[in-house]
């Protein structure tokens, strides 16, 4: 259990300053590129050296950690960290035949660079960690934060998920069949019955602690599963709900990780049926990436805080008048699955 006190999100949509989830930025060439806000907190000379994942992570983080009491930990989930810098350095190796290379891209490419840059900018010498477990990188960061809060309920922690689209990981994932070959738009992503989704990127950050007072939302429970059989997912979800929902407690909303990949519909169908409530989906706003679930948690907090849900996100059912309890389900490429139970 953890309490979320403030949030920030950088995505392809208007999620940062003036939040607007109704007017959507379109998918372009099967990518949903994040809109980067300007920042006056970081010198331009420093920003120029950073890759997009680091820039998104640090901008999203600084927007909620400033003027906060000291953070006792910085906990980041990112599958790839600075992939663009990584392959830029790799290309240098090949092009210059391992000659004299500049280390900037190498240093920027290390996956822990986002968390460590946040540590540097906030002069924070406390717990600092980077979880990189692909589609469960953010979920493991959540588990880590939950354990820290159980250990130290009064302390504040920064929890976040970040990943970028680089030309290179796009190429690799496209070859691997993760993205569609035919061009899609935001409004037909779920209609085209083919394999693959659209690429996405973003960063979501949460200031969390063990104090209920003045919190925006509660993350009550989380579960991660490695499996491909949808029956295992279904039985785990039933157990998860049975052990975490109170008697007679109903889900007000189900936020599904459906991403338009027809091979994965079996998972979203069965979980939707078990959730048995209004189903929302968000990947036509964010695209697919390993830490997209961090953005799903941001959406859940946003709905709870503003008591509204944009119509474009509703798949089935009607928007409830009260939003108290939400289930989030995500899976990455049908191998890694997670459930999060979020409350007002």
């Amino acid at each position: 259990m953890l309490y979320i006190h403030s949030t920030s999100c950088i995505s392809a949509q208007h999620t940062f300053d003036d939040v607007n989830l109704v007017v959507l930025n379109p998918v372009e060439e099967n990518k949903l590129l994040a809109v980067e806000p300007n920042s006056n907190q970081i010198p331009n000379a420093v920003l120029r050296r950073m890759g997009k994942a680091v820039r998104m992570g640090i901008k999203a983080a600084l927007s909620i950690v400033n003027n906060q009491s000291e953070l006792k930990g910085i906990i980041i989930g990112t599958a790839n960290g600075g992939m663009e810098d990584c392959i830029k350095f790799l290309n240098q190796i090949i092009v210059y035949d391992e000659g004299t290379l500049t280390p900037t891209n190498f240093v920027q490419s290390t996956a822990n660079n986002i968390a460590s840059q946040i540590g540097l900018f906030t002069a924070n010498k406390n717990y600092n960690i980077t979880h990189v477990h692909r589609g469960l990188a953010f979920e493991n960061a959540v588990i880590d934060a939950m354990m820290l809060i159980k250990e130290h309920p009064l302390d504040n922690y920064l929890l976040g998920g970040v990943d970028e689209i680089s030309t290179y990981n796009y190429n690799i994932s496209l070859l691997d069949g993760l993205y569609k070959n035919e061009e899609v738009k935001n409004n037909n992503l779920y209609e085209i019955e083919t394999a693959g989704s659209v690429a996405g990127e973003g960063a979501a950050m949460f200031l969390v602690n063990g104090k209920k007072q003045n919190s925006l939302a509660t993350l009550r429970a989380i579960q991660t599963i490695h499996a491909t059989d949808e029956k295992i997912i279904a039985s785990n979800l039933k157990d998860f709900l049975a052990s975490h929902l109170a008697d007679g407690e109903k889900l007000d909303l189900f936020l599904s990780g459906e991403n338009g990949d027809c091979r994965l519909n079996k998972y979203t169908k069965i979980t939707e049926k078990i959730a048995d409530t209004t189903t929302l989906r968000y990947k036509h706003l964010t695209g697919e990436f390993p830490t997209a679930s961090a953005l799903s948690l941001w959406f859940a907090c946003n709905f709870i805080e503003n008591k509204k849900v944009p119509n474009n996100m509703v798949k089935t059912g009607s928007i409830p008048t009260e939003i108290n309890t939400m289930l989030i389900y995500n899976n990455y490429n049908g191998i890694q699955h997670s459930f999060m139970l979020v409350n007002r």
Binding site: G81, A111, N112, T130, V132, H133, L136, N140, I143, T224
Partner: peptide, 9 residues
């Protein structure tokens, strides 16, 4: 159970 990967250099 829980499976994770950590990279802090």
């Amino acid at each position: 159970g829980i499976v994770n990967t950590i990279n802090t250099a």
